[in-house]
């Protein structure tokens, strides 16, 4: 489940359990990080006696492992820039901004023959257009922009960002080299890098100097998917689920999934729970699960006795999760 979440696979069930575990803001962060290697890492933990396997999907830290974890957590770098609200296509931005820096760097050395940083065609075109439009003073402008930015952030983070830059006879450091040079793990280096780029994206978006705006316009997006937002809007303006299904030409089950997704992402007061769960049903649900932890609720506890469907049950579960979080 966690692997799916980190990879950006957002099924409603992944999202739901992510919410329960308090992991929502990490969705899609490790999209391109090699998660296969995690299995190796887990095996290493087991062979070192730090963890044991409970079942196919669960592992538990041993006592020795717990002590080790506490000591690691003290110094381990944890991602700071995690957002409930936005997705950042950090990898695309990185490739794009590196290509921009490289093309200006090579241009300043009057070199036309070089191997451009790899991007997809769209990014390559965006950078090309940006370069042509700004060509006349681009070298001083970009240099000044970068210096301005790097000078006002943490010195260490500035070094990390600069060490990745690519240009004329400069190839920067890979994630692994960065990690080695700072004597930290690859995952930590990845987090530091990631934080650095997200900061840079936000800086560019909010900066009055619009030089790099064309490079980021599609990089920061809302986490919720567009279809889900459309479903949600139709729902709050009073359409029934059947109407929405007809209006948008999607299956009824999809409409339900969209609403579940929106309930998960939105704060409690932004989602119209009462339009789905009647007061009577809410009372039944409350009483049925009164002394149970939310993760242990089973739909079948109520499905035979009452006329409440799974959708309502899940929505209520989400509502209660949000209320619990606030306490």
């Amino acid at each position: 489940m966690i692997q799916n979440l980190l990879n950006g696979k957002r099924t409603v069930s992944t999202l739901f359990w992510a919410m329960r575990y308090g992991l929502l803001q990490y969705s899609a962060i490790l999209k391109t990080y090699d998660l296969n290697s995690i299995n190796d890492d887990i095996n290493k933990l087991i062979s070192d006696g730090l963890a044991k396997q409970v079942d196919e999907y669960q592992y538990q830290l041993t006592h020795k492992g717990q002590i080790k974890k506490d000591s690691v957590m003290e110094s381990f770098y944890i991602l700071k820039n995690s957002s409930y609200q936005y997705d950042y296509d950090v990898n695309e931005f990185k490739a794009r901004v590196l290509l921009a820096i490289q093309s200006v760097s090579e241009y300043s050395f009057q070199n036309k023959n070089y191997y451009p940083v790899k991007t997809d065609m769209k990014s390559a075109m965006i950078v090309k257009r940006w370069f042509i439009e700004n060509k006349t003073k681009i070298v001083e402008q970009l240099k000044k922009y970068l210096i301005n930015y790097l000078a006002q952030i943490d010195e260490h983070q500035a070094d990390i960002i600069a060490q990745q830059m690519i240009g004329h006879e400069v190839y920067g450091m890979t994630n692994g080299q960065l990690a080695d040079s700072m004597n930290i793990s690859n995952v930590e280096a990845y987090f530091m890098e990631y934080d650095g780029w997200v900061n840079f994206i936000n800086y560019i978006i909010n900066d009055e100097n619009t030089l790099l705006h064309p490079l980021v316009h599609d990089i920061r997006t809302l986490k919720m998917n567009n279809h889900a937002i459309m479903t949600y809007q139709q729902f709050i303006s009073g359409n029934t689920l059947n109407h929405i299904s007809k209006n948008l030409g999607v299956k009824l089950s999809t409409v339900r999934e969209h609403l579940l997704e929106m309930a998960i992402w939105l704060p409690e007061d932004k989602f119209p729970y009462s339009m789905i769960i009647s007061q009577d049903d809410e009372k039944i649900l409350f009483e049925s699960f009164e002394n149970q932890s939310i993760d242990d609720w089973q739909f079948k506890q109520i499905s035979e006795k009452y006329d409440i469907d799974f959708f309502e049950f899940r929505i209520y579960q989400i509502l209660r999760s949000k209320q619990d979080d606030k306490q």
Binding site: S105, K143, Q163, M165, G167, H168, V170
Partner: peptide, 8 residues
């Protein structure tokens, strides 16, 4: 790094 990237 910034100095080496851009020729004057």
């Amino acid at each position: 790094i910034i100095q080496t990237l851009f020729s004057k």
